[in-house]
Nucleic acid binder design. Structure first.
Lengths: 233, 233
DNA sequence: ATTGACATTATGTACATACATAATAAAAAT
DNA sequence: ATTTTTATTATGTATGTACATAATGTCAAT
């Protein structure tokens, strides 16, 4: 019996992981309870609990009260990505960042935008269109709507200096939302903005964020051809 | 003084969140220490710790020993998605799932594949190409390489019954890897497989997974036009 | 002024204990 | 046989205590 005398939850977690990757516990199988494991590893139950809790969070195991803990079937994999502000993305490639605001205007949004953002009938929203450049080349074309009911302060922001995006992430600290990615053929507007052919395949992302039940902003981003979105598994 | 007499870490977390969204604590600001907060909320420090720990994990706050805790500047947003097995995706749309294996063969992979998977020079890998259908329509075209050094058992699997993907997720429990998404124009092979025009814009994803330092599989998926990939923020 | 030793401090963790809660199994009532 | 009630059990959480660790500031030695 080798005694690795470290009872950090990370160590316990590692040993549990080991049992799974080594096939000691196979997917679907019930693993020993917390008390048993604690005794086995010679640590407190709370430590085992912490180790298991984080494994459940990342989807390696499934836990249910009374039913116990079993190795996940992994019907789904969780992928995650850090989506930095565009400036950082560009500068990370050691390229010069620059952006142009093409339009900044209060508009009555399209019905699709209005319903998505739960805007009141007839109310206007701030509509901003801009191009982000990496060096001389267009990098991303941005088409954004902002709910000025939720964020009235945004009206005062000087867009010559900071992009709305950066202003928002620095001043509106906590939002939730959805992020949808699809492939499209560039339409005329987008093609002209990104300086690509009309039928070019590009990634479009659509992000809608909320504070509580109030929409903040709806952003459509059109990425220049060749853009890769990277995730971790 | 209203006393919400619940000291669950979720409640404490909610109240801390509230302070951030309400602008009581602005981005970059140092917030009170754990002991202070515990006294304020009338709970144990460990409970505050749990609440703050999870907030740090999701990137709402930044913590450093001795330096204290401050509201994050949110330079980047974390997005996550559940990527289910294709069968589940199709069946979730209440459509019939079916797949065809076009090719299943041991090949010496291209150099790009070989280096990405860290395969030994000249060694073969299992190469599988298949089409996944949603109802009658092609849904995803799959081009996969499997490292048979890592997963020798896969050679025995009957591909008529279960797709390799499903077999892998059910039998190889714990892998890490990367997942890259981009927009491409369908080439001849893909276009024929998905029954779309040659220049059609489609999403291509490339997933490479590892067990420890041994590659498991490299999968290129080509999604039918219109496919949307959804993430949570 | 710079370096190094040391104290200070806020977060991080481990543990024992106690109780809460959800899901299940067993027992009782219909 | 079916439903309802009750007990059981494994996970989930809260707390006090103790100590670990990393980062910072302080003060003395050079």
């Amino acid at each position: 019996m080798t005694k690795a005398r470290s009872h950090t939850w990370q160590d316990i977690q590692q040993r549990i992981r080991q049992n799974i990757t080594d096939g000691v516990w196979v997917p679907g199988q019930l693993i020993p309870g917390e008390v048993t494991l604690a005794a086995q590893f010679g640590c407190a139950r709370t430590t085992v609990n912490r180790a298991l809790r984080e494994l459940a969070q990342t989807g390696v195991i499934d836990r249910k009260r009374k039913a116990g803990t079993r190795v996940a079937m992994m019907k789904a994999r969780r992928v995650t990505a850090e989506i930095p502000v565009i400036r950082s993305q560009v500068e990370a490639q050691s390229q010069q960042y620059r952006f142009d605001v093409l339009k900044r205007k209060f508009d009555v949004p399209l019905v699709s935008v209005k319903t998505a953002m739960k805007l009141r009938k007839g109310s206007k929203a701030l509509h901003i269109q801009s191009i982000h450049y990496a060096g001389a080349a267009p990098y991303i074309y941005e088409d954004r709507w902002i709910n000025i009911q939720t964020i009235p302060q945004v009206v005062e922001v000087d867009l010559g200096q900071t992009s709305v995006n950066e202003w928002l992430v620095e001043n509106i600290p906590f939002t939730r939302g959805e992020f949808v990615v699809e492939a499209i053929e560039a339409n005329k507007t987008v093609a002209r903005a990104l300086k690509v052919a009309d039928c070019a395949s590009i990634i479009k992302s659509r992000r809608l964020t909320w504070i509580e039940s109030r929409s903040v902003t709806l952003v459509n981003l059109y990425y220049a051809p060749g853009y890769q979105m990277k995730f971790e598994i």
